[in-house]
Design a protein around this nucleic acid. Structure first.
Lengths: 116, 116
DNA sequence: TGCATATTCAACCATTTGGTTGACGATCCT
DNA sequence: AGGATCGTCAACCAAATGGTTGAATATGCA
């Protein structure tokens, strides 16, 4: 369990990977489409997706040539529970999350949407 | 406010640092006392505490020779909110946290015993 | 004063991380 | 079959990470 927290938090520590997760929150995506908004190689994105998969945060399914990436929100549960233990003084504020997410997605999401 | 998601998640990715946070959840502690259960140098623990401080997860206050470490749970709120957005399907489970915490602290104690 | 305690600093080391490029297997489309 | 597209693999690189040891600084105490 502790090993899983290692990989989950480590995966979440990278802004590119967090943005990818936010993108996948909206819809499943092909690897190439995930990579499109970023200014780095497809290989780099492929590695990021491998790390997210290893952490259990996403899954990948191959259909034809295309590999579809899907958010796996359950993997975050242990980590979320762990953190909430420290934040138990604060009420959960999902509205704040909505506002925050809009900010994070501002660039990448707009580009992702244009691809259909 | 340096408590951004990068530094917070990165700080949380290390099991030593998570154990330190769990220890501080019980009470404020001096640096030497924080280091005691671990099988690594005081310098290493000092570095970990620096990383936790940089992330805003703890604060340090010098009183005499002793530096007291204090949990700063507010710093985890943004990160927690971010994560709960992905785990919105799961209710908060503080009992699970309690059980998990006992396990983590037991690990630290086990380390201390193999030392002596 | 002088010594012990508490903590950090500086330098160093091995491993990991996040990125690159070029080549490759797999799949779709003519 | 032949060519374009999708995604990964292998090798490489610079920088960051997590640890070490020995010296330094700051405080408490006899």
């Amino acid at each position: 369990m502790a090993a899983n927290l290692d990989t989950v938090f480590s995966a979440l520590a990278d802004p590119t990977r967090r943005t990818i997760l936010a993108m996948l929150l909206e819809d499943d995506m092909a690897v190439t489409d995930v990579a499109e908004p970023f200014q780095m190689s497809l290989t780099a994105i492929s590695k990021h997706l491998g790390i997210l998969t290893e952490a259990g945060l996403i899954s990948r399914e191959k259909r034809g040539r295309v590999i579809w990436c899907k958010l796996e929100p359950d993997a975050m549960r242990n980590a979320s529970v762990w953190m909430q233990g420290f934040g138990q003084f604060e009420p959960v504020d999902l509205d704040a999350f909505e506002r925050f997410l809009e900010g994070e997605l501002a660039e990448a999401d707009a580009e992702a949407e244009t691809q259909g």
